Computed example of a mutant assay.
Amino acid sequence: MKFRPCIDLHEGKVKQIVGETLHSNRVAENFVSAFDSTYYASLFKRDRLSGGHVIMLGPDNERAALAALETYPNGLQIGGGIHLDNAEKYLQAGATHVIVTSFIFRDGQLHKQNLLDLIQLVGKENLVIDLSCKEKNGRWYVVTNQWNTFSDFEVNEENIKYLEQYCDEFLIHAVDVEGKQSGIQQTLVQQLAQWTTIPTTYAGGARSLSDLQLFRNISNSKLDITVGSALDIFGGTQSYDEIVAYHRSINRVQHN
């Protein structure tokens, strides 16, 4: 299990927001940082936290995103509006992977040709598929259009196995709890741990060190996790340094 850091960008600033409100006229902001993206990239580089993600939430974030990648080359992934015309640029700028959702999920369906075109351009080894999902009738479905539109693509064992052929990692946001500090979506975590065989990062609801310990137990250390709004570096109460120390301690144990 790894702790994966995040840099969420909105209107060029580092923020923590409630993702479900992105489509509205009044975005719910949990935190707006006085520091720019390079501050956080430098912090994560200092602490040797690899595989974190920079997410561009809407327009006017490219400059801040590129600055973060330049600060921590080969240490961060990038997502948000990734498509054929810009994917290579971000990899050349220092991203290890591009993260994609909407480009491959259009009109409520998986567009396989778009996925294949992206693989041909950047390679499977540089691609992360973001399966941001919400619960409906006891099942999980990918949501797009700033998490506002349900697709017909169910996140289940069969579909996970299918998509594993086409990417290097998964990033899975539990949209129902994302940004709300209400605790992790335990059922989804348990199912993902059973279904996935490639590196998979879970995001959504983690608010404390005890949540990370619970996450580690119910995922059998198989999944990685990201924490956002709860961290003190993003205006929360959970010590970032404590999470980093925990990450180091469990990974020392796992490697011994």
Rank of each mutant, 00 (worst) to 15 (best):
G179H: 03
K161S: 13
Q185A: 07
N156W: 04
E164K: 04
S151R: 10
L171W: 00
G179R: 03
I172C: 07
K180A: 01
L163F: 01
E178W: 02
A174D: 08
V177D: 05
T149G: 03
D168E: 13
T149F: 06
E158G: 13
N145K: 13
E164N: 08
I172A: 05
K161R: 12
N159C: 09
F170S: 07
L163Y: 07
V143R: 01
G179A: 10
L171H: 04
E178L: 05
G179T: 06
E178R: 06
Q165Y: 11
W147S: 10
V177C: 05
Q181L: 05
Q186D: 03
S151T: 15
Q146L: 13
K180V: 01
K180R: 12
K180I: 02
E169L: 07
E157V: 12
G179F: 00
Q165M: 12
N145G: 10
E157I: 13
E178T: 10
I172N: 03
N156L: 07
I172M: 08
A174N: 02
D176H: 01
N156Q: 11
C167F: 01
I160E: 09
Y166W: 07
Q181N: 09
Q181G: 09
G183F: 04
T144H: 02
V155S: 11
E158V: 14
F170C: 06
G183D: 03
Q185E: 05
G183W: 00
E164R: 04
E178I: 01
S151I: 13
E158A: 14
C167A: 12
E158T: 14
I184C: 09
Q165R: 15
E169W: 05
G179E: 06
D152C: 13
D152A: 13
A174G: 00
A174K: 00
T144G: 06
L163G: 08
F150I: 06
L171T: 07
Y162S: 14
W147K: 01
Q165I: 12
Q186H: 03
D152T: 15
T149D: 01
Q165P: 00
V175R: 03
F170T: 00
Q186M: 00
T144V: 10
K161E: 14
D176E: 07
V155D: 09
N156I: 15
D168S: 15
V143D: 03
T149P: 02
W147T: 04
K180L: 12
E158P: 08
Y166R: 08
Q165A: 14
A174L: 08
T144F: 07
N156K: 10
Q165S: 12
